[in-house]
Design a protein around this nucleic acid. Structure first.
Lengths: 193, 193
DNA sequence: TTTGGGTGTCAACAGGTGTTGGCCTACAGT
DNA sequence: ACTGTAGGCCAACACCTGTTGACACCCAAA
């Protein structure tokens, strides 16, 4: 019947763990850290709140597990200096459209210092190397990465969090067509002033 | 029936009202809607929590009073098509540097639907007219205003809320030099694709 | 069958929340 | 002097929060 796998006995609780994590991601994404109560998450996952504590320790642990994801930027080496803007915008857009983890991260980062720190870490660690490789003077990399972050996160903010209707209605190709030159310029143009 | 007295009878409570409002603005700006408790605001204002209720009804009323501000965009008629980008970015930046109300509004808008609605209203009502006046086809005004919002709010997000160090360290002139061409393009360039 | 641990529920605790009503005090109008 | 009223504090309400410990269930191993 149950073809036993010698090494890893499939714990029956894996399904529950996943249900909790899915519910948590959705709640954090739509409600933010404070309003996403453990009780609500547990109810969404159809289990008792105490199970959340058993599997993830406490609310912070649950959040950490729920947003444990890296945004898998393409290898900086595979980007050409000519179309890095388009490539970055396309990648970010598909990333945000696909899963709600990033929305959760943004929403929490705004009200929770730990979330803000995580956000700083992700964008600093992932975007700065790209900037360092693309821009004229490596010393300017952090500033240029910050400008790119501002443009990309601003789009995410208006489109996925604040939901400005015109921002929501933009087709992905339109977003790319508008933002790609901006990102391109922030990374590769000579430093102004 | 209050007769209009020559010297306006300065209610003694005006000072308290103002103290409450100031404390509320600061708390909302730094903590967001949920974490900014009435008790904490009252303590900051050195009065009893019940006074907040008496003067502002409830927490929502307090928030509404605390963020009752318009961002006084320059008259669209006074803007020229050539430097609207620079003018908008400069104005936006000085507005955010000066007072914390906008930070409070942004922070709350992310977790509170009423705050988000207010944000949509402000930027829709103020930025769309400018876009309508500047862009080639008035029908594109909302989309172009949304793009400008994304860029400007993204800057505010990274600089004043998430506090990315490189974004914080940018000098105001640098911000203007980088963002003005972007805003300019979003408003006046021909529609791509 | 008995054991025993993984899985799950239930009830409760201690603390914090927005909000309310009662009571006290200062002071201007009569 | 008395009185009305506005400004202010205190204690309490009802609810919700994260978190905990005790108890029941299932099901495989001994």
């Amino acid at each position: 019947m149950m073809h036993s796998k010698p090494s890893t006995p499939p714990r029956r609780s894996e399904a529950t763990r996943k249900a909790i994590l899915d519910a948590a991601r959705e709640r954090f994404a739509t409600d933010g850290y404070d309003r996403a109560t453990i009780r609500a998450i547990a109810k969404d996952a159809s289990i008792d709140p105490s199970m959340v504590m058993r599997y993830y320790g406490n609310k912070e642990g649950l959040f950490a597990a729920a947003v444990a994801i890296d945004l898998r930027l393409p290898d900086p080496g595979s980007l050409t200096r000519e179309d890095v803007g388009r490539a970055l915008v396309t990648h970010f857009l598909s990333m945000w459209e696909r899963n709600e983890v990033l929305t959760a991260l943004l929403r929490v980062g705004v009200t929770n210092e730990a979330g803000a720190e995580r956000m700083r870490g992700i964008f600093g660690d992932q975007l700065v190397p790209v900037a360092r490789r693309m821009c004229p003077d490596p010393e300017q990399a952090p500033a240029r990465a910050a400008l790119v972050s501002a443009q990309l996160l601003g789009l995410a903010l208006t489109r996925y969090v604040l939901r400005f209707p015109p921002a929501v209605d933009l087709a992905p190709e339109e977003v790319v067509a508008w933002l790609a030159p901006t990102v391109q310029r922030y990374l590769t143009a000579p430093y102004p002033a």
